[in-house]
């Protein structure tokens, strides 16, 4: 096709478009949807009986805030990466809350060990974590992908990887509210491990899911 013909076609196809809303607003909208879905799931599965007690524990609150902050930061980064004039450094935003998250859990491992000895670091299989995190993260991820597709697929692997990190972190946040597992090493390996795995798989699928559209019909 000649370039002039393409320009002609695009110009005729180019009706009015509404510019995307500010990234902060979009993150907040996504968080509201994701947390709403997570809350419904926790309610459906049934919150853990000792939840009230956990909510008074500083360590539990730290871990949960770090997970939530990681989710928000990853979602913001994913959305920013679909804007052509946004800095590419956005992708590193979740590093800060992510490090805080891993840090609190790492510190928790030491505490468990100091308190209970080798028993505190026992690692038993807990595969249902992965299932629940994926289940609760599914709708938030779907919603975020739909939001991302309104942007430009400039860095698809990073974008989808960060989006999945955000959704899975929400899944983990919710999981802790009904799943009775607080041993730091168990949380670190099975839950944060599941989150990382999901983000990694999504990053590999990025190019297949976020693509530049072809010619308008």
């Amino acid at each position: 096709m000649r370039t002039e013909d393409l320009i002609d076609r695009l110009a005729r196809d180019g009706g009015p478009v509404r510019p995307l809303e500010a990234p902060v607003r979009r993150v907040l909208v996504w968080l509201a949807v994701a947390l709403g879905f997570a809350a419904a799931m926790v309610w459906a599965i049934g919150p853990r009986p000792d939840l009230a007690e956990r909510l008074t524990e500083a360590r539990f609150l730290y871990e949960q805030s770090a997970a939530l902050a990681t989710a928000a930061a990853a979602a913001a980064a994913a959305l920013a990466l679909t804007l052509p004039d946004a800095s590419r450094l956005w992708r590193f935003l979740p590093v800060i809350p992510g490090a805080a998250w891993l840090g609190t859990l790492g510190l928790g491992c030491f505490r468990d060990w100091a308190r209970m000895g080798p028993d505190g670091l026992r690692l038993t299989p807990d595969p249902e974590c992965f299932f629940y995190i994926a289940l609760i993260g599914s709708l938030p991820l779907l919603v975020l992908v739909l939001m991302l597709r309104r942007g430009a697929p400039l860095r698809p692997s990073w974008t989808l990887g960060l989006a999945a990190l955000a959704a899975a972190a929400i899944g983990n946040f919710a999981l802790r509210l009904f799943h009775m597992e607080d041993a730091a090493l168990m949380v670190l390996v099975w839950q944060v491990g599941a989150v990382a795995l999901i983000a990694g798989i999504a990053a590999l699928a990025g190019r297949a899911i976020l693509r530049w559209p072809g010619l308008p019909a």
Partner: peptide, 26 residues
């Protein structure tokens, strides 16, 4: 043509409050 198509499909991502040049350069 590929750049023009990309411009077309991404045109909603331009924020009218910001300059056009860095956007198209990206």
């Amino acid at each position: 043509q590929d750049i023009l198509l990309a411009l077309h499909s991404a045109r909603a991502t331009w924020d009218p409050a910001r300059p056009f040049m860095p956007w198209i350069a990206g």
